[in-house]
Write a protein that binds this DNA or RNA. Structure first.
Lengths: 333, 333
DNA sequence: CTGAAAGCGCTTACAG
DNA sequence: CTGAAAGCGCTTACAG
């Protein structure tokens, strides 16, 4: 039994017009006289009528629904991206279906099935990777598929990626320019495409310059892991004096460990560069030099990619190094 | 023109059964033979069929959609609550429509209209306050309405609230027990119900104990405001030695200002208590004693409240003081 | 500009 | 257990 709610029929009766006229009154650009539309509007207002988008979605090519599929949505960077994405979607007259997953591909599959069930116009995948056949099912159901910061491709799906490798390279250059002698790379074991690309950019640049790098990888991508990374690096005999953390969360933990457990001063004893530019990077306790994830640019690229008929190429977005106080300034002259 | 997608009719034809049989095969508990169901399943799998929940929502009493309406969703506390809420909703077989608002009641109204348009089973309001007539429209459309941490009531709507006043009182008791001589209250000017209740609990307890309290209120609820609050309090001639911040974000800013701008040591020179227990409160740089927002309890209460036929009373959830290092330990007896 | 009619994809009595 | 039929609330040719 359907839920009781006021329908176009009720409005039509009250306004003394046909159901068709009601429908037209709520469709921008439809051919209705101003007079009819006014009568309908009054009746609708009085009854508290709202067009049923479920029914409308059945008839139109678009439902106005877009699925946002992501893991760890309470994390600073993720939540910032999600906020931008959902806000921007609303501006565009769409509404976001938020589906959170753990990292397993299985839960991405479930999320995508949900999206299909509600016939979302598009699905934006921020975490995990849908398998090929499911991706095809999405397309077959007329859905656009946008992958954010995923390294694999899916035929028919658009990708939006950060230039992580370039950032890794420029992190290396920045630490060298600051005069750091013993370089380190600190990352988690998550092994996501973004992390790997940052690591490889950094290491490739070091290799090209003939420089040694101490590499430490531990656990999940979290503040706690940052503490462990800091402890691991600071207890080494060849304690580094310049480190690139593949994430701000890791950098914050690493800085706290270095300061509170080893009484190291930053940047005097240790220069640190992070990645993401989460809010905390700008807090005075950290004042972290880091790469800004251009949330707005990513969001625009994603919106462009999910428009019907958009091209499926990869949209590459550049990051920008935000200079703060965690990296030693090179000696003048 | 509707979007091309595989329908029950396609599956029925391939499986050699009626459309009714297909429908039943996807309804738990419906009367279909195992044999028919199996045939349908095979055909559905092969075609990549998924029940259209838009159409289903038209016929059933529930759509499976729940609207989450919130502002500042990239803020640590908000995003944690949203993550819990949307995760729990999924477990319950529902899916979250994320609608973010600014604080204006107008944008809450727009959000609610969207919810009605998609016939969500319920709307959970975390920010702002819907006006009475719109709240009634929601109910008339068969929607449940759950207000989280809102002080006003709406007839027919359920509320979930934290016992903010109790927390305020116990913050006072904790600072007194720590031996603080000059107490302060630091808050923003946002004036939300939760903030006001915390402030009043603290001030009422102080009044009852005959103690003076320096009150400082500035700007929005943010880390930056915390810096300003810290600066304002530390420049007073009667510099406080114990402060209750109505939010962790404010507390983090205040601590940073006290330390970096006034070289104050915490808790030696200043004891600080926050509220929320955001992730950063547990970071070594802050190690903040604070009240934990029991996100899980709030979430359970919200889910209980949005079940069809649930009672509309207010569900009051208690907070818990998490002791860390930002409050001086009282001298042992 | 307007309305009657067909149809989107589903579910649910109803009859067998 | 099974299927034909009616109907959920809408939109879109079609004819006037």
């Amino acid at each position: 039994m359907a839920r009781a709610s006021v329908s176009a029929k009720d409005v039509a009766e009250l306004a003394g017009v046909s159901r068709t006229a009601v429908s037209r009154s709520f469709t921008p650009g439809a051919s209705v006289s101003a007079e009819t539309r006014a009568k309908v509007q009054v009746a609708a207002e009085q009854l508290g009528y709202h067009v049923n988008h479920l029914a409308r979605g059945l008839l139109r090519a678009e439902t106005g629904l877009v699925a946002l599929i992501a893991a760890e949505i309470d994390t600073p960077y993720r939540s910032a991206l999600l906020a931008a994405l959902s806000g921007r979607l609303q501006q565009a007259g769409k509404v976001a279906l938020l589906i959170n997953t753990d990292r397993s591909d299985d839960s991405v599959a479930r999320a995508l099935r949900q999206a299909i069930s509600y016939r979302t116009d598009a699905a934006v995948v921020l975490s995990g990777m849908p398998d090929v056949s499911l991706a095809e099912t999405c397309l077959r159901n007329g859905m656009r598929l946008v992958l954010i910061n995923r390294d694999e491709e899916r035929p028919g799906a658009a990708r939006v990626r950060l230039d992580d490798a370039a950032a890794g390279r420029s992190a290396f250059a920045a630490l060298v320019a600051a005069g750091c002698a013993r370089l380190a790379l600190a990352s988690s074991r998550a092994g996501t495409p973004s992390l790997v690309a940052r690591e490889e950019g950094f290491l490739a640049a070091a290799r090209a310059a003939g420089r040694q790098v101490t590499v430490e990888r531990i656990g999940a991508t979290s503040y706690r892991t940052g503490l462990d990374l800091g402890t691991a690096l600071m207890t080494r005999p060849d304690r580094p004096d310049g480190v690139f953390c593949t994430t701000d969360l890791l950098a914050c933990g690493l800085m706290d460990a270095a300061r509170h457990r080893f009484a190291a001063a930053i940047p005097r004893d240790l220069s640190v560069i992070g990645f993401d530019d989460i809010a905390q990077a700008g807090w005075e306790a950290y004042d972290l030099t880091t790469f800004r994830q251009p949330v707005d640019a990513l969001t625009e690229a994603a919106l462009d990619a999910l428009a019907p008929g958009a091209e499926d190429h990869t949209r590459l977005v550049q990051t920008q190094l935000v200079w703060r106080g965690s990296v030693r300034r090179a000696e003048p002259g």
